[in-house]
């Protein structure tokens, strides 16, 4: 797990170190994109500082609601999960390098490690609980996160009801902490329990809670006339498997290789024949990964008993079958 600002500053540092002539334009937004200027039919990007840039190839790396994709007229389709992701920065009570995820009936909740005992929380849930989780105090929020990884769905629903009925923060926090204590004693006494739990959340960073709608969006193509899409611009999906960044990195690697081949053979890097080679290699792979993640969401999002039993059986089986587990990790973690 890495924060965007660290990723960006790392990229900037490597640009400054490299001998390549790369211009970075800061504090400028894209105002509009045109398909030609004069007689030259190359995309033209107009920036907020009135600069216009025209290039053989425009790469859209501008996220899920990509402006470049809209300009290129590439259609998208997919589903809204009717859920939101709530992100927050947490301070844990001990150092941690492991990611944890629990599938609740309301949606998966995950803790992803940052260095220095910090962590990133992604809690997927419906609009009602989202509003509630965003409105409570930082202290109660931290207690609810601890509860979400340990207590039963019924208990979590009970806390929601308490907050909704207008109970003061203090008594609710006490109630949560008491039940967590009971849980800790129970699990300590039952030797059979081998549930691995994340470290306790000591505090939630003030004003760090942000939410975004969860959706899956597929594109008709990753390329069009002098346009190539990479990353979320070309595929939006549920964050539950954390595959969005991995797929984006694979897109970039593949596009760079394709363009390098074209340059070495003296080709125009913006023509369809070149870009189609990139699309051919990435399109189906991305679609397959989006499909897999969507299936995981459906399988883990259901309450139906028989599916839940199958799911537990499969996960436990996977856990004890170390070759399959390693193979899966290798596929998912690039």
């Amino acid at each position: 797990m890495i924060e965007t600002k660290n990723l960006v500053s790392g990229l900037l540092r490597s640009i400054h170190k490299s001998q390549m002539q790369i211009d970075v334009l800061e504090r400028a937004k894209v105002i509009k994109i045109d398909s030609e200027y004069g007689s030259v039919r190359w995309p033209v990007v107009t920036l907020s500082d009135k600069t216009s840039l025209q290039a053989r190839l425009l790469i859209g790396a501008d996220g899920g609601s990509s402006q470049v994709r809209r300009f290129a007229g590439i259609d998208t389709y997919g589903t809204e999960y009717g859920q939101y992701g709530l992100a927050a920065t947490l301070c844990l009570d001990q150092l941690n390098e492991t990611a944890f995820q629990r599938f609740l009936p309301t949606g998966p909740v995950a803790i992803l490690p940052f260095p220095g005992g910090f962590a990133n929380l992604i809690w997927s849930t419906g609009p009602d609980q989202l509003q509630l989780l965003k409105s409570v105090s930082d202290e109660l929020f931290a207690a609810l996160v601890n509860a979400a990884f340990r207590l039963s769905p019924a208990e979590l629903e009970y806390f929601n009801d308490l907050v909704r009925s207008g109970a003061a923060d203090g008594p609710v926090i006490e109630e949560v902490l008491w039940r967590l204590d009971v849980y800790a004693q129970n699990s300590a006494s039952s030797a059979a329990s081998k549930v691995v739990l994340p470290p306790r959340v000591a505090a939630a960073m003030p004003k760090s809670r942000l939410s975004f709608p969860l959706r899956m969006r597929m594109v008709d193509s990753l390329v069009s006339d002098r346009v190539a899409l990479v990353g979320d611009a070309g595929h939006v999906m549920h964050p539950l498997a954390g595959q969005g960044l991995n797929m984006g990195l694979e897109d970039v690697q593949c596009l760079v290789e394709t363009l390098e081949q074209a340059v070495l053979s003296g080709q125009d890097i913006g023509i369809q024949a070149v870009l189609e080679r990139y699309n051919k290699q990435r399109y189906m792979r991305n679609l397959a990964m989006q499909g897999v993640v969507d299936k995981i969401w459906h399988v883990f999002g259901t309450d139906v008993g028989s599916i839940a039993k199958m799911r537990s059986l499969a996960m436990n089986g996977l856990d004890s079958f170390s070759i399959a587990k390693r193979l899966l990790l290798k596929t998912m973690m690039v």
Binding site: V40, K50, S52, L53, Q54, V263
Partner: peptide, 10 residues
């Protein structure tokens, strides 16, 4: 102001 971006390979 229009700038055309060259690929810097050559």
């Amino acid at each position: 102001m229009l700038r055309q971006l060259a690929t810097r390979t050559g």
